[in-house]
Simulated assay, not measured.
Amino acid sequence: MTDQSDSANWSRRGVLAGLGAGVMLLAMPVRADDASVAQAITDTFGHTPRRDGKITLKLPPLAETGNTVPLTVTVDSPMSNTERVKRVVVFANRNPRPLIAIMTFGPKAATAEFSTNMRLSGTQDVIAMAELSDGSVWQTQVRVLVTVGACDTLQLRY
């Protein structure tokens, strides 16, 4: 009579089910949450106090697809030698990675404005933050309603 432990009695079906479940867990997209966005902001700007204002963030209130969402950021600044925008950072609180973009403005930049397209995983808040030459940090936030998320669907389709 042989003594067989439970771990040695795995069926082929049980092993395949376990492997399938593991693959599904790996394929599921990980989303940022408010804590990871807060950590990304702290990593980028430290504990500098943030104020609302000076930034205009233009995004569509409703995006039919998250594959390409237009974004325009404008910062109210004279862009002089003494007062100018050093950088603008964009965050999204439900994308796989919270940090979306960093735009740096050199001393000869005439305006603190840029436009681009971004992908959004679903309905979420987009946060733009600007660091000025005096060290102050300004922020604004806009919610975008996305009907079909980009980051989730493309991983499964392609």
Rank of each mutant, 00 (worst) to 15 (best):
M1W: 07
V148D: 08
L25A: 15
R97Y: 10
V142A: 13
G149F: 06
Q155A: 09
G122S: 11
I41H: 01
W10R: 15
D33P: 06
T56A: 13
N81H: 13
V30R: 11
T44E: 15
Q155Y: 08
G20C: 01
E64S: 12
T42S: 13
A92K: 01
P49M: 02
T44L: 02
V126A: 03
L120F: 02
V85I: 11
T116A: 08
D6E: 14
M24F: 10
V144W: 03
M79W: 04
V75R: 02
V142K: 15
G106F: 01
Q4W: 09
E64A: 12
G149W: 01
G14Q: 15
L57W: 05
Q4E: 13
A150Y: 12
P98T: 05
Q155V: 06
Q141L: 11
A35Q: 14
P29R: 09
A35L: 11
V146S: 05
R13V: 14
V88N: 04
V126E: 01
L145Y: 12
M28L: 15
S136L: 07
I55V: 11
E113R: 14
R157H: 11
G22F: 09
L71Y: 03
V30D: 02
T56D: 12
K86L: 10
R94Q: 10
L62S: 06
I127D: 00
S7A: 15
V148Q: 12
S5W: 06
T68M: 10
A40G: 06
A130M: 03
A63R: 04
T82P: 00
E64T: 11
V146Q: 07
G53L: 08
K108A: 12
N95P: 06
T42G: 07
G18W: 01
N117S: 14
F114N: 08
M129P: 03
V126T: 06
V15P: 00
A92G: 12
H47N: 14
T123Q: 03
V85H: 03
I100Q: 10
T140R: 05
A21L: 14
T147W: 07
A109I: 01
S80D: 11
A27L: 11
T104L: 04
A40Q: 06
N117E: 13
S11G: 13
E64I: 11
R143W: 05
T153F: 09
R13I: 12
S121D: 12
I100R: 06
Q124I: 02
L132Y: 15
R143Y: 09
V144P: 00
A109D: 12
V30F: 00
A27G: 07
V69K: 03
I41P: 03
D76R: 14
A128N: 08
R157W: 10
D43N: 13
V30M: 02
V15R: 10
P29G: 03
G22Y: 00
D43K: 10
A92T: 00
R94K: 14
P96Q: 08
A35Y: 01
I102M: 08
A32I: 05
V30A: 08
S11F: 06
N117M: 09
G18E: 02
T56Y: 05
N81Q: 15
Q4F: 13
S11K: 10
Q141H: 05
A110Y: 04
R50I: 07
F45T: 07
V88S: 04
G66D: 02
